[in-house]
Design a protein around this nucleic acid. Structure first.
Lengths: 199, 199
DNA sequence: AAGTAAATGTACCGATCTGTAAACTTTAGT
DNA sequence: ACTAAAGTTTACAGATCGGTACATTTACTT
């Protein structure tokens, strides 16, 4: 019902964790940054890990919603949507708050395979993967649909390019990571006999 | 010059930081795991961050030496060496100690742009990049050498594939990340008119 | 106006954090 | 055998860690 405190906490905690790291951020810092008392926090979440899980759930929802909404704003034909993915990636990189992928970072700090935080990071990537696969499967060529094994291989390769771009951008290795990835994607489509796009 | 304590410390600290994270690992845990007294540690390194920097220097040296030695053991012709990169990547992934890329993880925990740890992570990736570029530049096609702008684009794209594969493998999203990346690399080479290999 | 649920401040727990001080023992080279 | 460096143990400082107890205040419902 309330729009309030709990959501407010999760939203603010997201920013702090994102900029500052999970382990490195103490609950006392969250108190200072959010103005919410520690007692209230522990009423809403039994442990710090529970709060982190809630933050990751919010992030997953926000990011996927925004990402694919933008993709569909930028293009309508599936083949163009696939390439638009990399333009949206670039938009993300250019946001001033960009600090890499929160799930890559979380899974680095909580890398134990049976940690629920780790599992949730894996889940997020799998959801990204399956959304991308949908776009690839929807592509139609002159000979009809793409064989599903080809589509799956392409979707996987696009994921590789996206994650690589995210990492190299965040590490300050490449400024043009997203556009380089896009060019690679074009090559990969062409290599599989797909070229019904004009950009 | 003894072979001793200092190097021993850095080597053991590497393992602990790699498995356990940097912020999450306290100096007391290092004492327990290495058997070296805290006083000795602080004789060798003024701060924990200095120790981390030494660990990263060792890791950079170890990893790059091992990686490109293996590449050159697996193949002699540049075109084949480029593809062997992804086989070596796979070997790395299958090592039981594999826990992702230490530099990606370090730069996630120390993401402030002016942090020397962050800079050192960036540096490592740039060194990887330039080694890969060397292999690509050495490729000879029927029409002679590859234009340097094409080689640079390819090297960048191979980096994207490698980092993406490392992340997706570490996050448990894909088991075949390195081989998927290799197939993508083949496509990218073909897309640029390069196909003088037989695998 | 009374009742109730939510949020608050403050003070605290025991453990752990990075880093230091001082005194003692081992080791290596002359 | 003497010295000096390198290593050790033990104890500690001061801050911060995740998490809790308790008493109080706010704000909405009836």
């Amino acid at each position: 019902m309330r729009p309030s405190k709990r959501d407010e906490l999760v939203q603010e905690a997201l920013k702090v964790f994102y900029q500052n790291g999970f382990t490195a951020t103490g609950m006392d810092l969250l108190v200072k940054k959010t103005g919410i008392s520690k007692t209230s926090m522990y009423k809403h979440f039994r442990t710090k890990d529970d709060l982190i899980l809630a933050v990751l759930r919010l992030r997953d929802e926000q990011l996927r919603n925004w990402f694919f909404r933008r993709v569909e704003e930028l293009a309508t034909r599936p083949i163009e949507q696939v390439l638009a993915i990399f333009d949206v990636l670039d938009e993300w990189f250019e946001q001033p708050e960009f600090q890499g992928c929160m799930f890559i970072k979380a899974s680095s700090e909580f890398q134990c395979a049976d940690d629920p935080i780790y599992s949730q990071c894996t889940e997020h990537k799998k959801l990204m993967h399956s959304s991308i696969l949908k776009y690839v499967l929807a592509i139609e060529t002159d000979e009809g649909e793409i064989p599903s094994d080809v589509a799956e291989k392409l979707a996987e390769q696009f994921m590789l390019l996206m994650e690589g771009a995210t990492v190299l951008k965040h590490m300050g290795v490449s400024n043009s990571a997203a556009q380089d990835a896009k060019l690679a994607a074009v090559s990969l489509l062409q290599g599989n006999g797909i070229c019904g796009y004009d950009a």
